[in-house]
């Protein structure tokens, strides 16, 4: 493959930098109106252009070359920042693709007789790279938020001396149910509670897997010497459980959280009185 830029191309780019940048800025600003200031765009673009020129001078031909390390770094920073600020994919990529507008100016200028096609190809690569880092940054944000949500959505509360409860809200998946299970069992030990209530009033649907997880939690609690009640089973869910043929066995279920609490307190009273010699 021939080098992307001959010396003439680099020289032309440096000489005509103002023209290129003006057109680039115009195109990008038109698209990004209001989302970012012209000053910021200008600074960003001059950083990118400088790094691009440095890379070309160092003999870089494709974006993955070591000569373009700095350029890739700048692009990654810019697109990650845009992802965090909530820019759309289009708004992020346009900042780079608009550079083509600048390059077209060069070809339409009669004084200049250079072939900018290789550069246009490079700009395409820059755009793709920008988009990739943008997507990666978004993914990172999403998984961060999912983790935060997981923490937020599983509060284990103490209802009474010896009774803890976890009100589940929203869709349950394996990962979340596992977190709930661990948290609930740890709370039993930490608070010395012998009763746990899992309230599923806020759970829209229960499938076989989720039911399995609930059952496992109950069995694990029993191994530790605690009793676990599942409350808030809505009529539709009761129907699903039966339709799916899920065996709830001897697991205690109650219609409401209040019923479950009364039940736990009654059981507590029994053990307390059983401990007193007649």
């Amino acid at each position: 493959m021939a080098p992307v830029a001959t010396d003439t191309l680099v020289r032309t780019l440096v000489e005509r930098a103002e023209t290129v940048r003006a057109a680039w800025l115009e195109a990008a600003a038109a698209e990004l109106h209001g989302r970012t200031t012209r000053g910021e765009l200008e600074r960003e673009q001059s950083d990118i252009l400088d790094a691009l020129l440095d890379g070309l001078r160092a003999g870089g031909t494709t974006l993955s070359d070591a000569a373009f390390d700095q350029l890739r770094g700048i692009l990654a920073d810019v697109s990650a920042a845009r992802a965090r600020l909530g820019f759309t994919p289009r708004e992020t990529a346009i900042g780079v693709f608009a550079l083509k507008e600048g390059l077209y100016r060069l070809t339409s200028d009669d004084d200049v007789a250079v072939d900018v096609t290789p550069l246009l190809r490079l700009v395409d690569d820059l755009g793709l790279f920008t988009f990739e880092t943008y997507a990666a940054a978004r993914e990172a944000i999403i998984s961060e938020q999912a983790e935060q949500l997981l923490e937020l959505s599983t509060p284990v509360v103490k209802l009474w001396e010896g009774v803890v409860a976890v009100p589940l809200v929203g869709t349950l998946d394996s990962a979340r149910t596992q977190v709930v299970m661990e948290k609930l069992l740890n709370t039993l030990v930490d608070t010395g509670s012998e009763h746990a209530i899992i309230d599923i009033t806020g759970v829209p649907a229960v499938d076989t897997q989720v039911a399995q997880h609930l059952l496992k939690t109950v069995v694990a609690a029993r191994l530790m010497g605690a009793e676990c009640t599942i409350s808030g089973i809505r009529p539709q869910i009761a129907q699903t459980i039966v339709a799916l043929g899920i065996e709830f066995g001897d697991i205690r279920t109650r219609a409401t959280l209040a019923d479950a609490l009364v039940d736990a307190l009654r059981a507590n009273g029994r053990t307390a009185s059983a401990g007193v010699p007649a």
Binding site: M181, E182, L185, N186, L188, V189, G192, S193, E194, K216, V219, A220, A221, R222, L223, M224, G225, A226
Partner: peptide, 24 residues
């Protein structure tokens, strides 16, 4: 029995039969 141990036992498919259990 520690929580992590109880979770693992359930996953392993191990039950203690009719053994009675208590927190402490």
């Amino acid at each position: 029995m520690r929580p992590a141990v109880a979770i693992t036992m359930v996953e392993l498919g191990l039950s203690l039969g009719d053994v009675r259990t208590a927190l402490d």
